[in-house]
Design a protein around this nucleic acid. Sequence first.
DNA 1: TCCTGTTTATAAAGCC
DNA 2: GGCTTTATAAACAGGA
Length: 323
Amino acid sequence: MPVLPMPRAKRFKADRLEMYLENQIQGSTPAPIDDSLTSLDWLQNFSIFSSHPEGPSGPGCPSSQEKLFLRRLGTDFPSSPAAGDTAATGMLRYLGSPVISGSDSTVGPLLSWYPCIPMQPIPLVEVDYKTNLKVKPPYSQASLICMAMQASKQPKITLSTIYKWITENFCYYTHAEPSWKNSIRHILSHNKCFRKVPKQKEEPGKGGFWQIDPEYADMFVNGIFKPKIRIQKRNKGFQGVSPDPKPLLSKNNRSTTKSTKTPLLATKPDSMRRDILAAALDDVLWAEVTVDTVTVPPTFGFGLSEDITATCDHPPPTTLTVL
DNA sequence: TCCTGTTTATAAAGCC
DNA sequence: GGCTTTATAAACAGGA
């Protein structure tokens, strides 16, 4: 099952969707962003670890816009490791093909969302966080904790096991200042998604066990911590859906949720419906986009496929479906 | 002594 | 500017 960290530059994802939808609405064949995309020669020299963050330039190289895109992929949208022993390899996907589906267990949901936009073939750039000690994994520490828990395949694990899994799968933390362990402990204590399970008297060792609170289990999409979907207003008159009013964090790390209403998309003009969908997907962990459908997780606030279908009913036979 | 766990405080970044 | 999220630092207590 794919995973994806909460992206910082979420707006970018919506931009891409809007671009896609715009193509669909205009009834045009999606065009490449840049002719340079058809040439992949530059990729041989491309590395996110390059001392030249701008990457290669010149004929056959990506445009500055595409370089920006790649940087965003590298910093904001790397795929997550599978929540298992084979974790810690991120694949950067560039201008996708519909090859990878959302059910793929080794690639992130972004990789299922983005590549389905019918554009260009996909080169991959692999980031091995397991061996690269210079690059900090782009996953929140809550996500790392969850990955460790899922990788253990145990209902509960100890703090030391979490440490061990993180250092084994993310070399960065092996050489990092030990303060990250303090952060891990802080998160375990503060984040309500994690629950402490006291050790029984017959169980040896220090400390207790930790597990994901079942009440908040849906906060983790395949190991990636995802705060409840909070669809912000992007259009006046529209409020998204937040399925759970409970705060995620306690004390000084408190979090609030806003009361929301299910939008009546059918009552909105086409342009607004398109924006609403884009805004909604902006807050969704992943989505599959193909010529015919947009698929988002079941936890997505919209429950009515008819609503989303109504957002892009032109040109036929294009439809957008929310499962 | 070291590890574990809690609590408080602060900062950066993004969003509204 | 305020709020939220995330990360970091530090102090402290208790247990192995």
